[in-house]
Design a protein around this nucleic acid. Sequence first.
DNA 1: CGGCAGTTTGATGTTACTCAATTTAAGTGG
DNA 2: CCACTTAAATTGAGTAACATCAAACTGCCG
Lengths: 238, 238
Amino acid sequence: MQESWPCVTCPLREFDFCAALLGKPSEELHFHQQPSWQSYRAARPGENIIIRNQISENVFVLCSGWAFRFFQLPDGRRQILRFLLPGDLFSAVMAFEERFYSSVQALTDIRISGVRRAEIHARLAVNPAISKALSKSCVVEIGDSDQLLAALGHRSAEERIAYLFLHLMKRITIKSVIRDQRYPFPLLQQHIAETVGLTPVHVSRVIGLFRDRNILDLSEGILQVNNLPELERIGALT
Amino acid sequence: MQESWPCVTCPLREFDFCAALLGKPSEELHFHQQPSWQSYRAARPGENIIIRNQISENVFVLCSGWAFRFFQLPDGRRQILRFLLPGDLFSAVMAFEERFYSSVQALTDIRISGVRRAEIHARLAVNPAISKALSKSCVVEIGDSDQLLAALGHRSAEERIAYLFLHLMKRITIKSVIRDQRYPFPLLQQHIAETVGLTPVHVSRVIGLFRDRNILDLSEGILQVNNLPELERIGALT
DNA sequence: CGGCAGTTTGATGTTACTCAATTTAAGTGG
DNA sequence: CCACTTAAATTGAGTAACATCAAACTGCCG
C-alpha cells in the first residue's frame, strides 16, 4: 500500500528519525519515487499496529495522528508506556531488535511509515544524522520513562494526572503552535487511567475536581488549561 | 586515583560495555599500562557517585559491588529507577549526554571505572562491539523500565515485591553461580520500598507474609527462596 | 552497657477501588 | 426530526489496600 503523502508533517524536524532518513522537507519523496526499503500504511483508532512478540523487519515511524505503546497484562488490563506523536519512532528498541516486546495501538486515525531495519543499519555508519536521531530517541525514551516511574511510585492521583497533562502539553507544544492554552488531546479517560495506574472512575473524579477548581477542562478532544501555574504546582516533578 | 584491579569481574562479558572497550579478560589492563582516557575510583555504601544535573565528561561503568540509579524528589523522597550490578553501564544515556538527569548511589562497597565520552565516540565508528554493547544497554534499560512501569501501574504490593525479587534474581544469576536458591541481596527494605513505590513499613509486612508462607526469607543480605513456583505465580508479569 | 540503624508490630486514617446506577453525547435508522 | 442504541463520563455508597503514627524489638558496634 503506497500513497502519496509526505512522511512527516511536524514542523520541528531536527531530530526526527524520518527526516534523517529522508532528508529535508523540500526533498520529500512521493509515490513515484519511493524507495523499496520504505513502506506506508494507515490505521484507524483502536487498531493494533504491532502486537507483543511480533517479529518485523521494519522500523516504524508515526507520520500523522496519535498512537500509544503499551504492555498487555495477563488479566487483560494494559499499561500504556508512552504516547506517540507525529515524527516519533515507535521505540528506539525497534531499531536494534527484530522482536518487539510491547504493542502499539492507534489512538486517532494515523499514518505510519516503515523503514527496513537493514537499511537503517547500512546508513548508520555513513550518516551521522541517523545515529544522532537514534541516540536522541533513546535518551528521550529513557528519560520520560524514568519520570513516569517517579510519578507512579511516589505521587497521588491528582499529581500523576497533572504530570501526564504537563508532559503531553510540552510535547504537543514542540510539534505545533498552541493558542489560548487549548491543546489537542485525543485521549479518553480510559487511556489516562491506563497510563498513570488508576481506574477510569477515579480519573473522572480527579478531572472533575480540576474542573471545579477552574484549573482545566477536558472535553471533546481538547484540553483547555485555565490555571497553568496551579497545574504546575500540582504536577511538576522537580 | 588509580589502582590495580581488573575492570570487570563478571563471568559473562559478551555485552559488557567495559569488555568491549578493554578487550577480553586476558588482555586486562592494570595500573602501569592504564590509558589516559580511563580512570578508576572506589566508593562506600551510601556514597553518591553522580548527582542530578551534574556534568561529567566520563561515562561510568560499575566494576564491582551494587549501586542504584534514582530520582531525587522535591520532598526528599526518591524513586529508585534501576539497580546496577557489576559490568553495568550507569545508563546508556550517559554515553550521549554530558548532563546526567538522575543520580547514582553506592549500595555496597563498589569500584567504578570512568571512560571518556570522547574516547567512546571515537571508537564507536571503528569498533562494532562498542555500538553493539551500547545498543544492548539501551534495549535492556528500556525493557526493564517498561516492566517496572507495568508493575507500579497495575499490581498489588505483594506482586510488585515479588516482581522485583524475580527481576533481580534473574540478573544475579546471569552474573554469578547460585546454589540452593540463595541470592546475594544487599538491599535494605528501604530500598525495596523506594523502588516499588511502597512504605518501608508495608514492605516489612509483605516480606513477613512471604516468610510465614515459607515462600522466601530475606535477612543479612541473603535472599533465600524456598518456593520459587509460588513466587513466580505471584510476581511474574506475563 | 548504651546507642544506633534496621525491622517488626499495632492502632488508626486516608486514598483509591469496586460495584452499581445515572447522565451525557454521538451516532443511526426510520 | 425523532426514537433508539451505544460509548463515555459522572455520581454515590461501601470497601479494601496501603499510609501514617508510634512503640517495641533486634542485632551490631563502640
